[in-house]
């Protein structure tokens, strides 16, 4: 059963018409081929049109679409099924919202880490909705340090509504865990590629988001706060999420224009959920490309450039000096 978002209703209508037509065709009485061709063309056109004009808030909705592929799906695709998940932060427990492990990309070992959302109600709870606890960030760091030790590149896959804001998360130092990751990823002496595949919410996303190439899929968002929370804080109401999404400039296009990310990975027409294989292919191609390009870079250079890149982010101005009064 496919899920359709509010603005996808025209797409849903056509798909339903096609299905009905196919039922009629199964009876064998009428030739439906011409009509079917027309409808399929109409479907493609409608998808293209709707997806060419998505508002920021609609993109946020697409980024959370329940049929979208999640982290493990991409990792499986990138590694052609050679991925082996490993567990635990060696201190507290194994965080199911953060996954990680080795895989082979074109015969070379790569370390993968990423937030994992659940694919159904039961799994969503098991994965804590992709909201990692401190042990998740510490597991990610352990694996990245392991990769560094054996000189293997790191790929992080980002998809989280935020770091988990629970009581135990505070007790175990959520802030420290994220801060430590920023610090250590910044000086990791192997290539790091980060891909936002869904939601990139705030510190929880950035906690595995320091890389030489930070890429976003076309219909994802990345910002300091979710549009809903931003609306509730600045407008003191939940009703301004569309305005907040607009104001936050959180889409891939805006983030690239502001030089806060390094590139955009296109999604198939109709979003990653309309063509999962296609989305995986696109992500794989980009990741392979950057792994190859970065493989030869000297580690000192890599770290130096990474630090420089993040240090250049931000916009400040000089205050106009107050004109001296003439005496």
């Amino acid at each position: 059963m496919q899920t359709f978002l509010e603005f996808e209703k025209p797409i849903q209508n056509i798909i339903e018409q096609i299905e009905k037509l196919k039922e009629v065709a199964a009876l064998g009485a009428v030739d439906v081929q011409p009509t079917l061709r027309d409808l399929e063309k109409k479907l493609a056109d409608t998808r293209t049109e709707i997806y060419a004009n998505l508002s920021p808030w609609e993109r946020v909705q697409v980024s959370r679409h329940p049929d979208r592929p999640y982290t493990l799906k991409y990792i499986e695709a990138i590694t052609d099924g050679t991925f082996v998940e490993v567990h635990g932060d060696r201190t507290v427990k194994d965080d199911k919202a953060m996954v990680g492990g080795f895989g082979l990309v074109k015969g070379r070992t790569v370390m993968f880490v990423g937030q994992q959302k659940g694919i159904n109600t039961k799994m969503r709870q098991y994965r804590n909705f992709g909201m990692a606890n401190p042990e998740g960030y510490r597991k990610a760091l352990r694996l990245m340090k392991l990769a560094e030790k054996f000189n293997k590149p790191v790929v992080t896959i980002i998809d989280t509504p935020g770091a988990f804001p629970g009581l135990e998360a505070e007790e175990r130092g959520q802030g420290e865990a994220i801060a430590r990751n920023l610090f250590e990823m910044m000086r990791l002496r192997v290539p790091v590629i980060c891909v936002v595949i869904g939601e990139g919410a705030s510190g929880g996303a950035l906690g595995i988001g320091i890389g030489d190439k930070v890429l976003m899929l076309e219909n994802t968002w990345y910002s300091v706060i979710s549009p809903e929370s931003c609306s509730s804080i600045l407008w003191r109401s939940w009703d301004y999420k569309a305005q907040a999404a607009q104001a936050l400039k959180l889409t891939a296009k805006d983030m690239l224009a502001n030089k806060l990310i390094d590139g955009i990975i296109p999604e198939p027409v109709g979003g990653a959920h309309a063509d999962v294989e296609g989305a995986c292919r696109n992500v794989k191609a980009e990741v392979v490309k950057w792994l190859e390009k970065l493989a030869k870079t000297d580690p000192d250079k890599l770290v130096e450039r990474r630090i420089k890149k993040f240090c250049e982010m931000g916009v400040v101005e000089k205050a106009k000096p107050t004109p001296k009064a003439k005496s």
């Binding site: 801060a179 910044m186 510190g203 950035l206 983030m255 502001n258 993040f310 931000g314």
Partner: peptide, 10 residues
């Protein structure tokens, strides 16, 4: 927004 988030990294 995004700029302030990246100050954590900076």
């Amino acid at each position: 927004a995004g700029f302030s988030l990246m100050q954590m990294a900076k």
